[in-house]
Design a protein around this nucleic acid. Sequence first.
DNA 1: TCATTACTTAGAATGATTATTAAACCATAT
DNA 2: ATATGGTTTAATAATCATTCTAAGTAATGA
Lengths: 150, 150
Amino acid sequence: MISNADISETLSQRLSDSGLRSTPQREVVYSVLLKKRDHPTAEEVFARVKPEMPMISLATVYNCLETLVQCDLVRAVNFERGPTRYCPNLHPHAHFHDVETGATHDVDLPAGLLDQVKAILPEDFKASSVEIIFRGKESPKARGGEPSSI
Amino acid sequence: MISNADISETLSQRLSDSGLRSTPQREVVYSVLLKKRDHPTAEEVFARVKPEMPMISLATVYNCLETLVQCDLVRAVNFERGPTRYCPNLHPHAHFHDVETGATHDVDLPAGLLDQVKAILPEDFKASSVEIIFRGKESPKARGGEPSSI
DNA sequence: TCATTACTTAGAATGATTATTAAACCATAT
DNA sequence: ATATGGTTTAATAATCATTCTAAGTAATGA
């Protein structure tokens, strides 16, 4: 298991690598992202952080999130023009966005697929990142259990 | 070559299929999208339409673009939280977004790749659309010839 | 210590888009 | 033709997420 101390160590490590400081605000923002990995918006992060740190401001949450993105600890994800969502999953993965519930799920990419996708680029295009976004609806898995009451 | 009459026929066809009317505003908005396929924003479309129709309002441009998206004549594309861009290319394709110039290019998808990408989804996820977005920088091809600025 | 720089806060400002509302327009039934 | 009811447009206000600004705090270094 990963302890709180470990978390703040990776964090302060990455921050100082970029010439930045570890602060209580940055630590608590990062920790709420790790605690519930449901791609929260800045406002949602703000709401989760507040109980632990009531004086923190929304602007600071935005600043911290941006900082975490800068040092590659967090990925920013956008669906259409909705608010930016934040994701601490660093493995290469796609996103599935449920148009009905708004829920967002990580979808692991099999080895090689990303390279295959990158291979479609003309040679003069150098991609620094690739985003794969699915939009749709998740049907509850047809399995034994409660009947779908509709 | 496709004439103006043909264009407005497809347009009014699609519109009436959706129970909507063909209007001069919708026609001129659609025509500027076809004329220069560089993924303009609503503001850019507005600027291009104005000379032809000086009284048109920005709100109407937004409305027309939304209408065209609804009847599948135009695709809306988003990069991060930048303004929505509009693309009349209906073939399945990915997008390359140049982080330096802001230019956007369509990238054709080889047959089968989209299915391959969709295949990574768990069975309970039904994707109605897939977006593939590259972000990066294009190195000018060292060669003569017309620029492929689609 | 004192100066420098980084960081946080509160609130104002911005930018893109959507909502509101009144007027103009159009198709059709009378 | 004219009334009617729905559609579309235009101008402007409102909204939402985000960024900017200014002022205060705190850590760091000469």
